[in-house]
Amino acid sequence: MNLVTILHAGMATGTVLLFATIGEILTERSGILNLGVEGMMLLGAMAGFSASLATGNVWLGVLAAVLAGGALSLAHGLVTIHFQADQVVSGLALTFLGTGLALVFGEGLTGQNPPLLPDLTIPLLGQIPFIGPSFFADFNVLVYVGYLLIPATWYYIYKTRPGMHLRAIGEKPEAADTVGVNVYRLRYLYVFAGGCLAGLAGATITLGVSPGWYSAQTTSGQGWIAIGLVIFAQWDPVRAAVGSYLFGALRRGILDLQGPATLLGFVNPLYINSNWGFFLKMTPYLLTIIALILGARAAKKKRLGAPAALGVPYIRGERGL
């Protein structure tokens, strides 16, 4: 148990949360709440694993995961954008649907060995002592994709014209509509983008971070944690990254705490009675709640909050609520 291994593992497992959280940020910024992240993630995890196994090409696996997550999200898009159904219930339905599909099609995938994502060390950066082995060495490729995604989404949301449109349709869709922005089409686009990233998060698990298919245990609620992190992150990709990597490190740290016989010179109670580990396993979920409380307080102080039109269907030609 040392800092470098925890950081290293934290960045890897955090990447899963990062993709899902940033995807959900894009979706929610457009005014659509998609609670189906867990379902899309699990379906992506299954599709990626299965496609990589069937084709022998891990990249086709990643592609399949992205498309599976995206395709499932379009069902949510249709129901919430065109049919104006309740977004909360539709998101829950999506979770059931995605989980069910993943379990049905994932039958028999346990124990299989598809090609996995290759590991990569960044030249030069990877050689820096401490920083190199913690952040730039021996990671699967998607971890570096995650690094690039953070500034890219930040720049896209705050500094580009389409990013401005994205924020506009989430805050005041009728105003965006009057200046010629197609609210319906863009909302579909960002729901799809969120689904694709959730699918990618799934593939990151099964093809990279913890390879293998363990049915519903594969994601074990990380999709829900991602939705919590969106609120903690105040819909900001940089804060989302901080939260994701922290949670990633935490998940790993919890596992590592049970290993050694002594901790800081004291007898490790977890080593003697592994049942105390159940309390450790609770911590990510409890910390999500604490993160929400902190996020809500910070939001109140800075008068930040959810996109104003989040969860409200937009009906062209009708006054909003």
């Binding site: 065109h82 049919f83 159904a85 979770t95 059931f96 069910g100 379990l103 994932g106």
Partner: peptide, 25 residues
């Protein structure tokens, strides 16, 4: 078998129910 079938069916039913609500409005 497969074990997820009941869950899948539940998801479909819920989805269909909320989409069909549009026919009421």
């Amino acid at each position: 078998q497969p074990s997820g079938l009941a869950m899948l069916l539940q998801g479909f039913i819920l989805f269909m129910i909320i989409s069909s609500d549009v026919l009421l409005r």
